[in-house]
Design a protein around this nucleic acid. Structure first.
Lengths: 320, 320
DNA sequence: TCGCTTGCCGAAACCGGTTTCGGTAGCCAG
DNA sequence: CTGGCTACCGAAACCGGTTTCGGCAAGCGA
């Protein structure tokens, strides 16, 4: 069954077919004692990351489990609170051979998990990219592309003064999305006003505060691009508090595609991310990584899907 | 190390201390080949259950993983879409010895998972109770108690015409919560009007529809008790659509303690459930169940915590 | 002093696989 | 007819534990 070279293909097939007929599968933990492999992927969740969890987790898990299940592998989930605890969790999982490799959600700028696993020589895949790509396989959504398109869309509607509310700068995605925004502005021949750039808004409250700062400027923006949907929903509040109307007085574009956005009034125009298929891709990539495929084959990206809903509109004509 | 009777305690301790010093722990999959036990708990998620997931999952997982981790066990997560798929998933996990027992979230009225595992003689614990308790260990929140207290609270504010919007009737909790509501009404000497009883509202949309039916009656209720927070938020919409005000014209009490409730306007008065500690308790109970403790020691309940916020008020004086 | 019990230890079998290795049969070329 | 190669098979060692069992030494009562 294990593909030795001196057995003809015909016989291998015969044996495999019989195994299937008897629905026999070697017990993974029995193989593990000789091979050290459990056919199991590890996922360490960090619940300190408040934002990362809520809508994201269920879909992501659905994808991961369906991906692992399809290959006959398993997903082992652990959690950690603090930073030190996290390292310890990885170590224990590894020492006990509970996981052959790890999925790392939410790549960070200088990701301590990457350092740890790279040094330990343990296979892993990132949801998100890494500047220092050595040893890194990943799947990611092209957030920079989405931000660029967001600007283009707004420019197409006549907007020229456009604000940007970025997400958490400790994450790898923040730099990319800001780059995308700047590139979009540049392509449209617009300059970026530093007063219209906000950082680190990952919750509704963060977004409301950041948007308030933008809207209270002498010449406020007519449109705001948000790197994170929650921030966009916060911007809704800031707009409403100023007796303005989203989509008419201020256009807003988000990113993530959270369900709350679709149900907001007006429905949030956003770039929707398919977290389930991200999970599926990541488990596939990690399994292939563990099997030893070269890194360069294990880097995939996909595009977010533009959901053109009600929160953007033509630039308002100055009425005063 | 495995507690044989002819070894003195002193020696056992000596060995264990040395093991700790060398930070040695037997590989669970090596033991598994002799004992059949992996020291791993199984969790099969059903993503068809849209509602069950969103806010609930992250906290619940946090609790489960922290509970398993504390005992040196692991959590193995799998998922299923359909019903047949689910049975198959359990079978595979069992056959491959991937889990020694299962946590079953969201107990249902006639739970197919319970039948399956009971027949197979596999340990499991429920989040929720079961009428046919044979073979069942569980942890549950006393929803009936909460609903009873909700009625008492409203009666204390002068309400006498109180509606009830129940959750999904396929779940075990629905009957309990309805019982609690009825008991509360009875204790207050109030009769239950069947026209004020709605069933199966688990989403905001469901809740809005159910509340609309209640509010459009000839003599609408002055207060509504909802078995599920999402339904309560739906009721907010129905109230607003009728140009009434929650907490002044109509009092609303929910159950679950979802974060959206706390941020609603007015903040939702509700009975808050600690899903994280539920997860912790469940993993503890399941591990003890696997170790062979008698069932009767493995049934725990806790109370929901009343969060008296802004969505209730004294019964409005009829102004017309 | 003898025999029995108690506490401990080491050897060996086993769990369910993987991997190595020596042997055998059949086939073909020399 | 012989030698070598290919395809296959069975035996054996090993992985890291658990469990059983026989043996040994010390302590104790008779």
């Amino acid at each position: 069954m294990n593909g030795y070279p001196d057995i003809s293909e015909a016989t291998q097939l015969r044996v495999k077919r019989m195994a299937e007929k008897l629905s026999y599968q070697p017990l993974s933990h029995a193989q593990a004692i000789k091979t050290g492999r459990t056919r199991s992927l590890g996922l360490v969740l960090q619940f300190a990351d408040h934002d990362a969890q809520r809508p994201f987790l269920a879909e992501f898990l659905a994808g991961l489990t369906s991906g692992t299940h399809a290959e006959g592998w398993t997903l082992t989930v652990a959690s950690s609170d603090g930073h030190a605890d996290m390292i310890e969790t990885f170590r224990v999982l590894l020492r006990d051979g509970k996981a052959d490799g790890f999925v790392l959600p939410r790549a960070m700028r200088d990701d301590p998990r990457v350092q740890l696993l790279r040094d330990a020589g343990v296979p892993f895949v990132l949801f998100g990219r890494q500047v220092d790509a050595s040893g890194c396989a990943w799947f990611d959504i092209l957030g920079e592309e989405a931000m660029r398109d967001a600007v283009a869309h707004l420019v197409g509607l006549g907007h020229r003064r456009i604000g940007f509310i970025n997400g958490g700068t400790q994450y790898a995605y923040a730099a990319l999305r800001e780059d995308g925004f700047r590139l979009g502005m540049q392509s449209a021949g617009l300059s970026v006003d530093d007063d219209l750039m906000e950082q680190d808004a990952v919750t509704i409250a963060d977004g409301a505060k950041a948007a308030a700062r933008l809207l209270d400027q002498k010449v406020p923006p007519t449109a705001i691009v948000c790197a994170v949907d929650f921030a966009a929903l916060g911007a809704y509040q800031a707009v409403a508090a100023r007796r303005l109307q989203v989509g008419r007085d201020v256009s807003i574009i988000g990113y993530d595609g959270i369900p709350e956005g679709a149900h907001a009034q007006p429905p949030l125009t956003t770039f929707s991310v398919d977290n389930k298929s991200a999970g599926e891709r990541l488990s596939n990539l990690l399994i292939r990584r563990i099997r030893g495929e070269p890194l360069t084959d294990l880097r995939e990206t996909a595009s977010a899907i533009f959901a053109d809903r009600g929160s953007t509109g033509p630039v308002p004509t100055p009425s005063n």
